[in-house]
Amino acid sequence: MIRIEGLHHQIAGAEVLRGIDLTLPEGGVTALIGPNGAGKSTLLSLIARLIRVQRGRIEIGGHVVGQTRDRDLARVVAVLAQGAHVSARLRVAELVGFGRYPWHLGRPGAADHAAVDAALERFDLTGLRHRFLDELSGGQRQRAFVAMAFAQDTPYLLLDEPLNNLDIAAARDLMTLVRGLADEAGRTVVIVLHDINYATAFADRLVVLKQGQVVAQGAPGEVVSAPLLADVFGTAARVEQIDGRPVVLV
């Protein structure tokens, strides 16, 4: 369970998050959506302790962020930051191997190698394991980064806009894999998404942010509606139900 209480955050004097109270249950995929500047990425980065908490409290899987040792937290939550980019020239298997670091601290054992192989297999990267990252397509590279987070073997996975710059095939592939992480591997996934239709198609829960506050949350069918889009995004888009799920017509 992720529990957030009274979370405020300022960046350069501007209030980015204004009193977030939020409880995310264990399991499933939760998507954070909202217009640009709503504070989605800031919220995710705070949960992932990429940014220091200024005011409020975040608890993840019983560990309080900011009071738990970094190494312990690294076995509880894995994060894929926005626009992840590695300057070192790494091969796919080496990158995924770094996901095991919190468990072996530099000295991988047989269990770690097995976990890396399993992650490569699950993300269909086995054939690419000896390729350098800069030799991959955008979709393959993003899969490698998610595989690394998966190999970290944490109950919680945080993904910040992993679909950026991916074409429709790569984006759907990746979201299907992410869905599988929740359904088959029992992980709790929190993901920041830009495109509401991907959120409604793949997430169990949506959390809608606007100007640093949570304005709606719940199952996609309960949350996404034309009035909400008008209110939160300020755009008059039609919402149709297709196969029992809301679809925004753009």
């Binding site: 990429l50 970094d70 076995r75 994060v79 990158l95 770094f98 670091y101 970290q152």
Partner: peptide
């Protein structure tokens, strides 16, 4: 520090995520 430096090479966010702020 050698293993921790390897992790740092992944970038600040990734290193933090792996428990090496």
């Amino acid at each position: 520090l050698r293993h921790r430096l390897d992790v740092l090479d992944l970038g600040e966010a990734a290193a933090t995520g792996l428990g090496e702020p």
